[in-house]
């Protein structure tokens, strides 16, 4: 029974990781591609972690919860790297345009270019 549940979560996790990767491959531009890895992959890894918790908790060694830490760190780091990539892209593209101009105009205006 527990094995069934474990494999269910493994399959679901694997499926979402796959969908995330497909998104990464076929969405048309960089900003849209970011959506794949930040979202679908979160649930993908989440499913696999739940499966891991179930499996190792059912063994003799007792409750296994350190997967929670993996989930926590993933939730913290995935958006940060996505933000970093997006930001880099914006600043590269606006390198000679609005971003620089706004910055020279003073920090009060702030912000970046808008498509």
């Amino acid at each position: 029974m527990l094995d069934l549940l474990t494999s269910f979560f493994l399959v679901v996790g694997g499926l979402f990781a796959l969908i995330g990767s497909i998104g990464l491959a076929r969405l048309p531009d960089l900003f849209m591609r970011l959506h794949g890895p930040t979202k679908a992959t979160t649930l993908g890894v989440g499913g696999i972690l739940i499966a891991s918790m179930l499996h190792f908790s059912s063994l003799d060694s007792g409750l296994s919860l350190h997967e929670l830490l993996v989930a926590l760190f993933l939730l913290i780091t995935a958006p940060v790297s996505a933000h970093l990539i997006a930001r880099t892209m914006i600043h590269l593209r606006g390198g000679t345009g609005t971003v620089v101009d706004e910055r020279e105009a003073g920090p009060q205006q702030g912000g970046t270019d808008q498509r």
Binding site: P79, H83, A86, R87, P107
Partner: peptide
């Protein structure tokens, strides 16, 4: 925002 439906945060303005 990055983790929730359909949105990714891209840039914070200098004045926050």
């Amino acid at each position: 925002i990055s983790l929730t439906p359909g949105t990714v945060s891209a840039d914070l303005s200098l004045d926050r």
